[in-house]
């Protein structure tokens, strides 16, 4: 999301941290998952990205990425689809409508939070 900028950086850091816990989706408000969701949201709606490409774009280890993807999948924010068998298997990951909507709400909440300080 381009354009998220602080109006008055450096003010009331404790208040910001407290508000964040209440207003921002805790499933997304984590560095690794925020990067995953933001990257998936950059894809056109209806598109999926393969696991290796996503890993390459985000720069997480496979284990870290799997762990975070599971959490997002359990919340219904992403869909994973596995095709093929054995070494030819391929997993693709896509943001669900609920995931996209949660991401939009997250960015709105973040914008409101930072704009209001």
């Amino acid at each position: 999301m381009v354009g998220l900028r602080l109006r008055r950086p450096g003010r009331q850091p404790d208040l910001v941290a407290r508000l964040s816990a209440q207003e921002l989706d805790p499933l997304i408000h984590v560095p690794a998952r925020l990067r995953i969701v933001a990257t998936l949201a950059a894809l056109p709606e209806g598109d999926a990205v393969s696991f290796p490409r996503l890993q390459d774009m985000i720069g997480l280890t496979p284990g870290n990425l799997i762990t975070h993807l599971r959490k997002l999948e359990e919340a219904g924010y992403i869909d994973t689809e596995k095709t093929g068998n054995g070494s030819a298997s391929r997993t693709s990951v896509a943001l669900t409508r609920a995931g996209r909507s949660a991401f939009e709400m997250y960015t709105e909440a973040l914008r409101g939070l930072l704009g209001g300080l």
Partner: peptide
């Protein structure tokens, strides 16, 4: 690598300002 230890918060407490910067950077990069 599925058993790598991953902190539940995936990288520690995230200040909204840092979140905004990370979001901006990640989106531009993607």
């Amino acid at each position: 690598h599925t058993h790598e230890a991953v902190p539940d918060n995936g990288g520690g407490e995230l200040d909204p300002r840092d979140a905004a910067a990370l979001l901006d950077q990640t989106t531009r990069r993607a």
